[in-house]
């Protein structure tokens, strides 16, 4: 017993250090779905209020740019609307969904906390369960794909953006419909990698990359980015760098897309996986 006490006295710093590192590592490991760590949850409320203030100040300085972006988006939407206005009625009927309403619902949201300089980036938006938002919903920015909701509380949701090394998105090249998975290599928050495109496909820099809609989270044909460079690697696949459409550094207004039929699709598919 005395020996034990002596050892404790002698190595108390080392023991304390190992203990603290243990706490830190368990926090990190749990942080893959870190929203579950109860200790942090209560304190997060305090810091989120604080982040709200910081975001308000930032948005004030960015207001001009935000306006321009919204205007640009408005213009595109108006153009699309115009296209439908000019269609004859019969065609309009043909393209409506058989369920007579769209399977996708949109919710607007504002980004209240954001990071671009880590390997596992996340951002927080001000919509939560109270507003009908839940995990596994898609988030798009005015420019294109932004991320997927990985956790939501009553008032907030945490989004895993494209620029997180754990993120994967099924995307295709618009011109030829070949699809692969989009990942981020942790380097530059403006570029991602498109994998699994076989080398016999003809590519051009500037080709548009869009979502496939295979995932039941994202609808198809949402802008992801454009191919900025590609090269043949040792394997059978290209190494493609995609310039992301979304500017994560100044992400402010986003839309959440809810797929109403997702639950149904997931349950049906579960039997075959």
């Amino acid at each position: 017993m005395r020996n034990l006490l002596q050892i404790l006295a002698k190595y108390h710093r080392l023991i304390l250090f190992i203990l603290l590192e243990g706490v830190a590592i368990s926090l990190i490991v749990n942080s893959n779905n870190y929203h579950n760590t109860q200790v942090l949850k209560s304190v997060r409320k305090a810091t989120i209020a604080w982040e709200g203030i910081v975001t308000d100040v930032r948005n004030y300085f960015r207001i001009r740019k935000i306006n321009e972006d919204l205007q640009a988006e408005n213009t595109t939407l108006k153009n699309i609307l115009l296209k439908y206005k000019n269609l004859p009625d019969s065609v309009l009927f043909l393209i409506t969904d058989t369920a007579s309403e769209s399977i996708y619902e949109f919710y607007p949201a504002t980004v209240v906390n954001n990071s671009v300089n880590r390997q596992k980036n996340y951002f927080t938006i001000n919509r939560g369960k109270k507003h009908g938002v839940d995990v596994n919903m898609a988030v798009v920015s005015p420019w294109g794909v932004a991320g997927i909701i990985v956790a939501s509380s009553d008032n907030f949701s945490v989004v895993m953006p494209v620029i997180n090394i754990d993120f994967k998105l099924s995307s295709k090249i618009k011109s030829n419909d070949y699809f692969g998975s989009l990942t981020w290599d942790g380097r530059n928050c403006n570029y991602a990698l498109l994998n699994d495109i076989p080398q016999h496909v003809t590519l051009n820099t500037g080709d548009t990359v869009v979502t496939t809609g295979y995932s039941s989270i994202f609808p198809g044909n949402i802008m992801v980015g454009i191919i900025s460079e590609f090269e043949k690697s040792g394997s059978d696949f290209y190494r493609i760098r995609v310039r992301l459409a979304t500017e994560f550094r100044r992400l402010t207004y986003v839309n959440i897309i809810k797929n109403r039929n997702r639950a149904e699709q997931v349950i049906l598919e579960r039997g075959f996986q």
Binding site: R13, E21, V23, S31, L40
Partner: peptide, 24 residues
């Protein structure tokens, strides 16, 4: 020193959404 540094990091963690990283 150990305990103070741990908490100094932990507080930053709360503000940057990185539980445990800075603390460790």
């Amino acid at each position: 020193v150990l305990i103070v540094s741990f908490f100094a990091g932990l507080i930053l963690d709360l503000f940057t959404n990185t539980p445990g990283m800075h603390a460790g």
